[in-house]
């Protein structure tokens, strides 16, 4: 028993003493090892060529990401930019609610880092372009009825209803005939569902309308909505369903 515990602590020491080449979540992976990770977990939907046309893709409606353009919806970076490694890690780690993209939390950071390095080989954009700096999300003010009311005014002023509808059900006048960059039909999100695909915390929601969703009709409102207005709008959206976790600011963000 004692010998075993010595062996075990040796393993722990070995693992901890390993050179700290990691530069944060998702960074510094090995694309060669990442290819195996991709084949193990990702290929059946995203396809051997990284074109989002794996063997399961035709059976599902939110289509798997095509990696060849280097266009990604969920980012902390400004509209049009590549995502950061940490952004990709978050998407892989937490999954995309309501789609067949599961949470890959359990496969661990090591696997995710390697597969991110491999995913980047599908688009030449990763060689010529760099992600712009992440947006700064200020601390969340308290959730309050007054803030929700102001948020509704921002919703109206910003004409969110054009796509998302007067009652945020995703049924605005421009809701139909929308297409994403790959020509697939896409609908504005029904914000009353209580789940946002890329995360439900306040800062997750904040990020969506400030950065926009690349490859989709959802534009960036960074130039037309101030940070204060943005938090009010977050609170308005959170008021639409009891399922949203409230007062879950960037400090507490997972």
């Amino acid at each position: 028993m004692k010998r075993l515990s010595i062996v075990a602590s040796a393993f722990v020491a070995l693992a901890l003493a390993a050179p700290a080449r990691a530069q944060g979540p998702g960074s510094g992976g090995d694309p060669v090892k990442g290819k195996v990770v991709y084949e193990r977990y990702c290929l059946s939907c995203h396809g051997e060529l990284g074109n989002g046309a794996g063997e399961f893709a035709e059976w599902i409606t939110t289509k798997p990401r095509d990696y060849r353009q280097g266009t990604f919806k969920w980012r902390s970076t400004p509209s049009g930019s590549l995502p950061t490694d940490a952004d990709l890690d978050k998407t892989i780690r937490d999954g995309i609610y309501g789609t067949f993209m599961p949470t890959w939390y359990a496969i661990g950071e090591h696997n995710r880092r390697d597969v991110i390095a491999y995913i980047k080989t599908f688009s030449a954009r990763w060689k010529t372009d760099k992600p712009q700096p992440s947006i700064v999300i200020p601390a969340e003010p308290p959730y309050s009825d007054a803030s929700v009311k102001r948020g509704r005014a921002v919703y109206e002023k910003s004409n969110c209803a054009q796509c998302h509808g007067q009652d945020a059900l995703g049924d605005g006048p421009s809701a139909h005939e929308l297409k994403d960059d790959w020509g697939n039909p896409i609908v504005p999100y029904d914000l009353t569902q209580g789940h946002i695909k890329c995360g439900d915390t306040g800062s997750d929601i904040y990020r969506v309308f400030i950065t926009g969703l690349n490859g989709t009709p959802m534009p960036s409102f960074t130039d037309s909505i101030s940070p204060e207005e943005a938090w009010d709008l977050v609170h308005y959206i959170q008021s639409l369903s009891a399922l949203y976790p409230k007062n879950y600011g960037p400090a507490a963000a997972k």
Binding site: R40, G95, I96, T99, A106
Partner: peptide, 30 residues
């Protein structure tokens, strides 16, 4: 739509993802 390798280290033994899936009651919870 996942390959067997998503849940099995080498089938039939489970890997981390497969264990989490089983522990969640055969659910991905998405």
């Amino acid at each position: 739509g996942l390959r067997c390798t998503a849940c099995h280290e080498s089938w039939p033994k489970l890997n981390d993802f497969g264990r989490a899936f089983r522990d969640n009651g055969y659910q991905l919870l998405m």
